[in-house]
């Protein structure tokens, strides 16, 4: 069996497993496991977003927590005003409708990614890594010292936002929503990768000069990729805030940006299901080793070091073989 078919089979297995395990937990009345699966799904959506920039475009953004946090604050602020019945500003009311919040989160994240991307993409390599980090730090310190929405204490969401036809207070309903959005975002990723746009983005990653020589302008394509990437991560942020019913500057911390990269690397860079596997591994690791020892991050560090030094394709790469494209 060639490695492409092997990867598709593996992907199908992962998608089914992520659905069946919480379904079993629903039957067995284990809401904690359903919530874990929801967390995996939402982290995976965030990483799918980053995977567009990092995996397809080769843009090592070390600041994607910025969009995650922005999405989180959109959800938190909208819910805060809906709960209090106060306008956000100039008479605009808050809302507790997830669909509206998601749309706003994606628009704002996209706009922010457009600004950050337009400035950062003037540089490349190590400078790109650091300037994206710096922009995320700017957001982190801004939320930390801006007192209106809780500052460093964060902002609680007292009542989870609503989704038409669902009872979001129930873990299973929330999981279904997150799972649906994950499948949707994976489909977007797969379509992008198969489209002319994805081909252009990957061509630029592999050789920007050659891409330019055949008439592809690197800057515009990369910027669009970066914006789409930020939008999906922002969407995940809004959902994450609703899952934990809390948003704080920690969502924008640089360690969060690092974790998103780690998720992609653990799963396999540029792989469709890499983010799902990576998120499951990270959350699973935290729950399993976190229960055994409070020093689980030591072991996470050692595993990560091992993966970087010796297993570069991530878990999907180990099982399904190397990717055919560079």
């Amino acid at each position: 069996m060639d490695s492409t078919r092997k990867e598709w089979l593996l992907n199908a297995l992962i998608a089914v497993a992520l659905f069946v395990v919480p379904l079993w937990a629903l039957m067995a009345n284990e809401p904690f496991i359903i919530t874990l699966a929801t967390r995996i799904a939402i982290l995976a959506i965030a990483a799918v977003g980053l995977n567009i920039a990092l995996g397809l475009g080769g843009m090592v953004s070390f600041g994607h927590a910025l969009y995650l946090g922005l999405g989180g604050y959109v959800a938190g602020i909208a819910a805060h005003h809906a709960f209090n019945g106060t306008p956000i500003f100039a008479g605009i009311p808050g809302t507790n409708q997830m669909l509206i919040i998601w749309a706003i989160a994606m628009v704002l994240s996209g706009a922010l990614a457009a600004v950050v991307g337009a400035l950062s993409l003037r540089t490349s390599g190590i400078f790109f890594i650091m300037i994206t980090l710096a922009f995320a730090q700017m957001g982190f310190f801004f939320t930390l010292s801006w007192p209106a929405y809780g500052g460093e204490d964060g902002l609680p969401i007292f009542v989870r936002n609503q989704f038409p036809g669902m009872n979001t207070a129930r873990p299973w309903d929330l999981f279904l929503i997150a799972y649906g959005v994950l499948i949707f975002s994976l489909a977007v990723f797969a379509l992008l990768r198969a489209a002319r746009f994805g081909a252009a983005l990957m061509a630029i990653r592999q050789n920007p000069d050659r891409a330019a020589a055949i008439g592809i302008s690197p800057f515009g394509i990369k910027l669009v990729g970066f914006i789409l990437s930020g939008m999906i991560t922002g969407l995940a942020g809004a959902m994450m805030a609703d899952l934990t019913r809390f948003v704080s500057p920690a969502m924008m911390a640089w360690t969060m940006s690092g974790e998103l990269i780690v998720i992609i690397i653990l799963g396999g860079v540029g792989r469709l299901f890499g983010p799902v596997v990576g998120a499951a591994l990270l959350v699973g690791f935290e729950v399993f080793f976190g229960g055994l020892t409070e020093h689980w991050k030591l072991w996470l560090g050692l595993v990560l070091l091992g993966v970087v030094l010796f297993a570069r394709g991530g878990l999907i790469g180990l099982i399904a073989g190397r990717a055919q494209h560079g």
Partner: peptide, 30 residues
């Protein structure tokens, strides 16, 4: 560790040294 990273791209360097932060911080805590 670091010696093995000179020939790698920046992404690998970021990740491996991020892993080192986790390891060294927990080691200090221990």
């Amino acid at each position: 560790v670091i010696r093995r990273l000179y020939a790698r791209d920046h992404l690998d360097q970021v990740l491996a040294t991020f892993a080192l932060i986790l390891i060294l911080s927990e080691a200090m805590r221990l």
